[in-house]
């Protein structure tokens, strides 16, 4: 028996979301009194993989096969499910990130395993069944999912638990899943990465702004505030729809869902569709001229005031804080 976690490496480094998945897997393994094993597909250095030992991973199954350097959901599903069999895993853990959102449901079918998409807590085991909590109705409620099958797949929401690092190095073992070239169906033609900015989906701090800013020319202070904090920038749907800001910055029900430690919303009224994309944030700060803006009801801290006045002051105060620490 074992718990298997799927870990992704990007540009030589283990993705933050994958460290969380591996840590979650180790915690589940600890609870079950079994080993935490990880599978990595594609190029990665043995030194980098060994660091997974610090989050409780005992063994890494590494398939260095270059065909895995690009994500292909069908081939990856076959490989991870083979790793689950090799490791004798009863629980498979993934991050509920871009690739995990597709890989996990495929794995659940392939392994005939009950699946929880977007777990926010560790599972509770009761004999052979496990219960895991996840958010539903766009964060308006949560639900307990009971998994009754022998094998279980859990995709854990990014930023749900903070890995505690200890000492130790994971043992890295070569893994050669049996895949034919025909299993790989997609050919990658290129990637378009936003350089010099923090990816919104991975950001721990987010500064977001909306229609209250009155025009795209007023975003300078928002970008500066983000820079001072080391935060990513985001926006409301209204603003991306009129092209004041790029579409990839849109957070909300039909845009990106973010769960940062701090979400600062400036000039966003807080329509329910916007809240659905941000209500997993640990702390929400709202700056709005309208004291009746619904966003204040979802906020931890609020300032009723004009962005043009408040944001420059925030920049100064955060600069002072950074200088002092």
């Amino acid at each position: 028996m074992a718990v298997l976690s799927f870990v992704e490496v990007s540009q030589g480094k283990i993705k933050k979301a994958s460290v969380e998945a591996a840590y979650y897997g180790s915690k589940v393994a600890e609870g079950l009194g079994t080993d935490s094993v990880v599978v990595v597909l594609g190029a990665a250095s043995a030194d980098e993989l060994a660091t997974l030992g610090t989050v409780g991973v005992k063994k890494v199954l590494h398939a260095a096969d270059a065909r895995f350097n690009n994500f292909d959901s069908k081939a990856f599903t076959k490989a991870v499910s083979e790793a689950a069999n090799v490791a004798g895993a009863t629980v498979v853990v993934l991050s509920f990130n871009q690739n995990g959102k597709l890989l996990a449901p495929r794995l659940s079918v392939r392994l005939k395993a009950a699946y929880v998409p977007g777990a926010v807590e560790l599972p509770e085991f009761n004999g052979a069944s496990a219960t895991v909590k996840k958010n539903v109705f766009s964060g308006k409620a949560s639900a307990s999912y009971q998994l009754n099958t022998e094998k279980k797949v859990i995709a854990v929401n990014p930023n749900s638990l903070s890995p505690v690092r200890g000492a130790g190095a994971a043992e890295v073992e070569a893994f050669a899943p049996t895949l034919a070239d025909a299993d790989f169906s997609s050919v990658v033609k290129g990637a378009d990465l936003i350089v010099g900015e923090i990816p919104l989906s991975e950001a721990e701090l987010v500064v977001s702004a909306g229609r209250g800013l009155k025009g795209p020319e007023n975003w300078g202070p928002i970008e500066e505030l983000a820079k001072v904090l080391g935060a990513a920038t985001a926006c409301s749907r209204a603003v991306s729809d009129v092209d004041w800001r790029p579409h990839h910055e849109h957070v909300g029900q039909t845009g990106l869902t973010v769960r940062p430690n701090l979400y600062i919303a400036v000039g966003i009224s807080g329509a329910i569709q916007h809240l659905a994309g941000v209500n997993g944030s640990k702390v929400i700060v709202v700056v709005n001229t309208d004291p009746e803006a619904p966003f204040f009801k979802a906020a931890d801290y609020g300032i009723v005031g004009d962005a043009a006045v408040v944001v420059p002051k925030l920049i100064e105060e955060f600069k002072k804080l950074k200088a002092a620490h």
Partner: peptide
């Protein structure tokens, strides 16, 4: 494969400071 055994509503609305 899965059964939802219970739903939970947030305990109380946030208090904005």
């Amino acid at each position: 494969l899965t059964v939802i055994t219970g739903y939970h509503l947030p305990e109380k609305a946030k208090e904005c400071k």
